[in-house]
Design a protein around this nucleic acid. Structure first.
Lengths: 341, 341
DNA sequence: CCGCCGCCGGTCATCGTTGTAGAGTGCGCC
DNA sequence: GGCGCACTCTACAACGATGACCGGCGGCGG
């Protein structure tokens, strides 16, 4: 910077003002400085800027595991949204480990101005931990509701209800749900409970009975577990002509188990999932799903975090809860058009 | 730090020495300082440390897109390997955009000590760009060979050859390959060309003829394109009893197209892919694959980068090329045991 | 008993940038 | 014609940590 200043015959600070697009710099001076910058290939030292200004220009994103497609796609969207604001993203994996998540929460990720945090092991019962957080924080996902921070999530109940209504619209009347929490309680705010709630609402609204034999508990949501639950469902002798998978990963396992058993999809059984991961486009048959608005979630979360960072308030006066718009993607597993979404 | 120093009745520098595990600090002093640190909840300011020491403790990882499962899993492994060394990872997506990749390469990712770069649009023809790089750089992937930097990649030829030998071992004799580059040339170093080379070597070694009708070009490697190529293969009337998919993403599309056409896998056609992405475990049938040693790639790449960073040499005296060990994972699509890998 | 060396800790300057305070200039307005 | 203000730029002092260098102290070999 010193060299640039000497070459352009201005002070250090004027170079800084040019770099930071400060308003009151004479156009001629600005041009001279800019030329010197280009000539010398000067790039500001971000550590020094971070030290002086207290901002690093980096935000953290903590997810359980990047190998889960949902989180990889979320990270993809968050990085894109951050880049549009000229921010970098440091990624942390908490590995679905409670101690690790508490540690991340206690200090944020190193070197960052704020954190987007999607916990897996921490739940609403740990909500109070969020009060102690001393940095800008926006929560993602379904694990913790009602905390003191901004929160961006999806329409679990309404999305699930729409998914089931989609099956009902195809004339299905015996609809199973796979992925309920082993100890389901309607009052809970876990995504599984919310989605089960949406499932029930849809049935009730259609005047259909609730049948406990159609609600299958699965934990965790892995394809093999979805497949196992489907095999049990088939073995139980309960009749069904539709399955609502509480997420696509389960749905992939379900399609697999149905295929093995010789069930035709969607003819015998229609299947719809939740999350709209890229992969659902390429199963056989392709998997219908609820698109939870991932881009909107990423965009909104980054925007809220930036707002907190810039306002300097750790905790919002009134915490905001944003639920992204969802929509149904009808693919082959519910008789949709198939090939492309 | 000043406060800690006052509380522990030592100098600023001694606190620094304790924090950095400097050897010559008296145990009693160290304990006193540590207690003061705990009491005050002191955490070093990493921007200041970065400014003074010239190191940020952050490395960059640039990949085309995180939504591609291979890169998500690679990033997962890299982050884990970095964390083990107490480093953070900033993730950049170059979006399979040539200009964007050149830009990343020119300056690295902001705020980082070095870069792991897996390009998609830059190729061996751009190798000279690497000479101008002024920061520690380790290349990943198959796009650029023979550059001046360390390079970590997989055994494309040998892995492909082993995949085809696996099919040959099942008694298959008419083996197709899907995913060749539209203008395949043996001399090229693209992954598609290398894998095709391995395919041919295996056939030749087994005394089988090469049949141009069995080599299907596909670009880019997306499931739908793999499915299209398979439909064309079926329509062409060429006989085949095995398919080697140049990656798993193609393989998923291939399984889909074979299923649609009523081909039984592996009975009529055995299929094997490449990359061993998590998802291949859950297709129907599950997809055999070549595991390219992703963990080893991540671990080695991070280790090499750290070495470069610590030695302060941008460009190695002799660039190293590390190819990770691979192995065949036999799942249902080649009559393997199936359920779990 | 002297001098050297290893240990332990302190002082000072500095990394590159930006906020603050303020100087100088030109212009419009009463 | 004087006053105030908006504009443009500068000098200086931090931000928080660490590297270079120095000094005292105790032990040990000659």
């Amino acid at each position: 910077m010193r060299d640039v200043a000497l070459l352009a015959r201005v002070s250090n600070k004027t170079v800084s003002n040019v770099v930071n697009a400060h308003p009151h710099v004479h156009p001629a001076t600005r041009a001279r400085v800019q030329q010197a910058i280009d000539e010398l290939g000067y790039r500001p030292n971000l550590s020094a800027r971070g030290l002086r200004s207290g901002r690093t220009g980096v935000i953290g994103l903590a997810v359980p595991e990047l190998r889960q497609p949902y989180f990889a796609e979320l990270a993809d969207a968050v990085i894109a949204a951050a880049e549009a604001r000229n921010l970098s993203v440091i990624l942390g994996q908490a590995g679905a480990d409670r101690a690790h998540e508490m540690n991340v929460l206690a200090h944020g990720l190193r070197q960052t101005d704020g954190l987007l945090f999607s916990p897996e092991r921490l739940g609403t019962e740990d909500r109070d931990l969020l009060h102690d957080v001393e940095y800008p924080l926006v929560m993602l996902g379904e694990r913790i509701f009602g905390g003191p921070t901004d929160h961006v999530t999806m329409h679990n109940v309404a999305g699930a209800r729409a998914a089931v209504e989609h099956l009902l619209g195809l004339g299905r009347r015996r609809i199973a749900v796979v992925g309920a929490h082993p100890d389901h309680r309607t009052g809970q705010l876990r995504p599984s409970d919310l989605r089960v709630q949406g499932y029930r609402e849809a049935l009730v609204a259609a005047g259909l009975p609730l049948d406990a034999g159609l609600e299958r508990a699965v934990a965790p949501w892995h394809p093999e577990n979805g497949a196992d639950a489907t095999r049990e469902l088939l073995a139980s002798g309960v009749e069904f002509d539709g399955i609502f998978a509480l997420n696509d990963t389960l749905g992939i396992g379900i399609l697999r188990a149905l295929g093995e058993a010789g069930c035709r999809v969607p003819d015998d059984v229609a299947v719809i999932g939740f999350d709209n991961i890229a992969n659902g486009q390429f199963t056989l048959p392709s998997l219908s799903s609820v698109d939870p608005g991932r881009e909107e979630i990423a965009e909104t979360a980054v925007a809220m975090l930036v707002e907190r960072i810039e306002s300097g308030t750790r905790t919002p006066q009134t915490p905001r809860l944003h639920k992204a718009a969802f929509h149904i993607v009808a693919r082959e597993s519910t008789g949709g058009s198939g090939r492309r979404a």
